[in-house]
Amino acid sequence: MRTAVSLSAIALAFAALTPVSAQAARNPAPEPAVTMPTDPDGIGGLAKETVSYGKHRLQKMDVWWTPDGMERPGVFIIHGGWWSSGDKKSMTRIARSYADLGYTVFNINYRLSTQAAWPAQRTDALAAIATARRNADRWAFDADNYVVAGFSAGGHIAAAVGTFGNGVQGLKGVVGLSPIISPLRAYTDGAAAVEPAKVRLRKSAIRLAGGCHPKGKCSRTWASMEVAWHASRRDAPMLTVHAKDEFVPPAQSELLKESLGKLGVPVKTITMPGKSHSTALYREPGVAERVQAWIYDRIG
């Protein structure tokens, strides 16, 4: 397999990134519809287009690739926003940094909890991956060699993809920046919290579950939202990063590390000082480098 990703490229790209504070299978996505031209703004060597992977207006993704005939590993990026807000546009800078490293990059939008309850968000991520794999030649993408990286609520979706079924074909790793591994833990922590972010996270988890609390008719939905409960031996290795004192605590990832560890699936957790969350945490000194190095070890 020919790729153009190197550790030296990782170092150069990081230097340029300066801080700026089987449901899918039942509903196959349509072939992608191009809505943006390639190579916007004259970006040297890279091409970009926005494609639809479903019929809903939010079922779209930006694709960045290098049209030089070389087959490249893929990086899927999932934005955060309490499951109810946010947009792929906020991840453009990070997506571009991975495209500059030589990866084919898929920066996805998904239905928000205001439009559809769980598991719509996981279904959308899986549908985006399926669309990318079906059209791998179009984007010089190695369909059997990719990672998924999510931020905050997007980290929950990414991790849920990682523990979906008995492994997802071609998925070699999952990265979560401040990932919410356990909405149930967030629900409990937010009940007695005085910190506004923890209270908001509890309310966001309830909204994600369709407005229901964990007991009663919504118990199955809440169970489906718990990433660690779905661990299996063929799941992809995971890397998670938290700040020690942020409102999504490192203890969230310890739950995943324990469940996957028992099955022999590697989980690496990094705890940074401070309170930075999600993309702000990613931009803390050294974090992007460590994430990029881990991805390189997984997919080259």
Rank of each mutant, 00 (worst) to 15 (best):
P285W: 09
A140T: 04
R2E: 14
R138Y: 09
E195W: 07
A99I: 08
L184C: 05
T92K: 10
P266N: 10
W82L: 12
Y282D: 04
D137E: 15
V265K: 00
W64N: 00
I10S: 00
R202D: 06
F151T: 02
R96E: 13
L201Y: 06
R220M: 10
L12S: 13
M225Y: 02
A99C: 13
I43K: 07
R298Y: 07
R122H: 06
S84N: 15
V267D: 03
Q292R: 14
W65I: 01
Y146P: 02
Y296I: 05
A120T: 07
A280I: 06
K55Y: 08
D87F: 11
A160C: 04
H242T: 05
Y296D: 07
P285S: 10
G261I: 05
Q23K: 11
Y110W: 13
M61K: 03
M91Y: 12
G264M: 08
Q292E: 08
R234L: 09
S84A: 14
P32G: 15
A159E: 01
K244A: 15
L171Q: 01
G154I: 02
L208T: 07
G210A: 12
N135Y: 04
P196R: 10
L281F: 06
K48Q: 15
A149G: 04
E195A: 13
R185M: 15
T66A: 12
S84Y: 04
A223F: 13
A236Y: 01
S204H: 10
G54H: 01
L255N: 03
A191H: 11
P249A: 11
R2G: 11
A99D: 01
R93D: 15
T104M: 13
G261Q: 08
T279N: 05
P237R: 06
G102D: 05
E226A: 10
S232G: 14
A293F: 04
A288E: 03
A236R: 00
S21Q: 14
K203P: 00
V194D: 15
A149Q: 03
A16F: 09
S178H: 02
A236Q: 02
E246Q: 07
T35I: 12
G155T: 05
S8Q: 14
M272S: 10
K60N: 00
G264D: 10
G210W: 05
A130P: 06
A231F: 09
S182H: 02
V5D: 08
A120M: 11
G165Q: 06
S113W: 04
K60I: 00
P285G: 10
V265R: 00
F247M: 06
A13G: 08
Q252V: 02
Q23I: 14
V161L: 04
A47N: 15
W222D: 02
G264E: 10
P119E: 12
I295Q: 00
G286D: 08
E289A: 13
V105A: 03
T50I: 14
Y103V: 05
W222K: 04
S259E: 12
W118I: 02
A130N: 12
W83S: 05
E246M: 05
V267A: 11
S253Q: 03
Y187N: 01
D297E: 15
E226H: 09
A288K: 01
P237K: 06
T3E: 08
G162S: 07
A223H: 15
R202Q: 15
V20Q: 15
K262W: 06
P32T: 08
